[in-house]
Amino acid sequence: MDHQDFAMGNWLVVLAYLTSVVGCALGLACTLQARSTDSPRARLTWLVLAAVSIGGVGIWVMHFIAMLGFSTPGLPVRYDILRTALSAVLSVVAVFCGLLVFGVRNRFAWKRLLLGGLLTGLAVAVMHYTGMWAVQIKGTIGYDPVTVVLSVVIAVVAATAALWFTVGLDKLLPRLAAGLVMGAAVTGMHYTGMAAVRLHLDPAAPDPSGTEVFSFLFPVFVLAALAMAVPICAVLMATSSSEAPRHTTLVP
């Protein structure tokens, strides 16, 4: 049986995409800082901030904004909170692993780029399908395997391209392009993954347990704001310090 992914209009797609772009662009900016520092501790700190921005905001928050448009006409949709929280943790951890491979050295290498892109793209897919595992309906949810594979390929290819753009993030256009490409990876993967969904609804089944998506949206947005505040401040401070004029001592 068909479901609706655009029940609240196309504006929701735009909002989801912009949310993903902001989170991913900020995370990629943190990745650039990680690649440009010589301190192992500072590098890990930047990569953690990048993983929170990309995995927590660019992927996880985007997913639940987009899921506001998911409905089973005339039947309730609920979410398992523990599985939802697990999807957030897996998203951040998986993104961190991908960024760790790519950003652990400041020297570019194709091998690290391809492996980092693969892991980061898989992180997008892991978050999506774990998040869908949290969805409870009157019936069961299945997937078309071909479309699932296509969604994973989209995520991996676009994530790899976004990481490649970070090599030139010292300029404005590559920064914007990286965020736009990574946002396209996340959003494109989400809606391709939703196209793979096959619902088997049973109106006679008992109502699903769990929480409505609107019930936990406010705490999600609060967490997203906090998750972005720290990286934003860190990036601004790092940029300011790097652009500060250096004083030289004149020797007579």
Score class of each variant (00 low, 15 high):
D2W: 06
D5Q: 05
F6T: 07
A7L: 10
G9L: 10
G9R: 10
W11S: 12
L12N: 02
V14R: 00
L15C: 09
A16W: 09
S20F: 10
S20M: 04
V21E: 11
V22P: 03
C24D: 07
G27E: 06
G27F: 11
C30V: 05
C30T: 07
A34Y: 07
D38Q: 15
D38E: 15
D38Y: 12
S39G: 09
A42I: 00
A42V: 02
L44H: 12
W46M: 06
W46S: 12
V48S: 15
V48K: 10
V52N: 09
I54K: 13
G55N: 08
G56M: 06
G56P: 02
I59W: 00
I59F: 02
M62C: 03
M62Q: 08
M62Y: 09
F64K: 08
F64D: 11
I65P: 05
A66H: 11
S71Y: 13
T72Y: 08
T72R: 03
P73L: 04
V77W: 01
I81D: 09
L82K: 10
S87E: 04
V92Q: 04
V93P: 06
V95F: 03
V95H: 00
V95Q: 02
F96N: 03
L99W: 04
L99D: 05
L100I: 00
F102S: 09
V104L: 14
N106L: 03
W110I: 02
L114D: 11
L118T: 07
L118A: 05
T120Q: 04
V124N: 06
V126Y: 05
H128A: 07
T130M: 13
G131V: 11
M132C: 05
W133F: 14
A134S: 14
I137V: 14
T140K: 07
T140M: 06
G142I: 01
T147K: 13
T147N: 04
V148Y: 02
L150S: 08
V152A: 09
V157L: 07
T160Q: 00
A161L: 06
A161T: 03
L163E: 07
F165N: 09
T166F: 03
T166D: 11
L169T: 09
L172A: 13
L173Y: 10
P174L: 14
R175I: 04
R175S: 10
L176D: 07
A178L: 01
V181K: 00
M182P: 08
A185C: 01
A185H: 11
V186M: 04
V186E: 02
G188Q: 01
M189G: 00
H190W: 07
Y191I: 08
G193D: 06
M194R: 06
A196C: 10
V197H: 14
R198H: 11
L199M: 14
L201D: 03
L201Q: 13
P203T: 05
P203C: 08
P203F: 12
A204W: 08
P206M: 00
P206G: 00
S209M: 13
G210R: 06
E212K: 12
F214Y: 13
F216Q: 12
L217G: 11
V220W: 01
A224N: 05
A225I: 01
M228Q: 14
L236P: 02
A244P: 12
H247W: 12
H247D: 02
V251S: 13
V251T: 14
P252T: 12
